[in-house]
Design a protein around this nucleic acid. Structure first.
Lengths: 113, 113
DNA sequence: TGTATATATTCTTATATGGGTATATGATGC
DNA sequence: GCATCATATACCCATATAAGAATATATACA
């Protein structure tokens, strides 16, 4: 087997720095492809192809508006990664991180209710 | 250009599920390669090669002890990823996550002192 | 010195990439 | 219908895998 596809999961999708850059730019707002091309100064096909990967793993959604395609971030898709790393937080943490860990454990119980 | 090397950074290194599995197994203890082979039931060269990638990005360190090589995790190397995702947490959060974000901001100020 | 043990490295191969360029699709306005 | 704008897709290429099998390295021990 070769390396996993970039569209295999969110971990693989965000391994590419340019896709992380796109996520940072889109976060919290809605943007058309053209806006992203202007902001990044990358060739349009490059932007479209990276967006296609992010779309396939669900990190962004697309909505058509006339000729434009408006992209929106789905940040909750990053949560599995956050939680995967969270389990190792206790090994590097100072005092405040420990409190965080404690509060998370409370929340986990709440989520189970 | 092709895809970035798996050893390019921690993001690329942990994109492979088997490397994440290794990290989960080693976390919090010290293990020889043989222990990992036994635990995973993977072929020994596979384990060694995945460990080499983790080593190159600093996620594990190796110590020689007789014929064995003992591997230890360096969990703080995961921190940059945790912090990258942290900036998007506010977009998905419920009440307790907001508190977490607040506590983090306190801690950031503390770190700056 | 020779042998067994523990681990790393070297091949090979199938597969997937990201960049660049050209082209296709699709909506708008005349 | 036709030209134009906005975006996606197809093609080519150089590069990097991960798996498997075979082999090399290094240490311990008789």
């Amino acid at each position: 087997m070769a390396r996993l596809k970039t569209t295999n999961d969110v971990f693989n999708a965000i391994a590419e720095p340019k896709r992380r850059a796109l996520i940072e730019i889109i976060a919290g707002r809605e943007m058309a492809v053209g806006d992203l091309v202007e902001e990044t100064k990358w060739p349009q096909p490059a932007v479209s192809k990276h967006l296609a990967v992010l779309r396939e793993v669900g990190l962004v959604t697309e909505r058509r508006e006339g000729r434009c395609r408006i992209y929106t971030i789905q940040p909750d898709k990053l949560r599995p990664i956050h939680e995967w790393i969270h389990q190792f937080e206790k090994y590097w943490g100072g005092a405040l991180e420990q409190l965080e860990t404690y509060l998370d454990s409370i929340q986990d119980k709440e989520d189970q209710r």
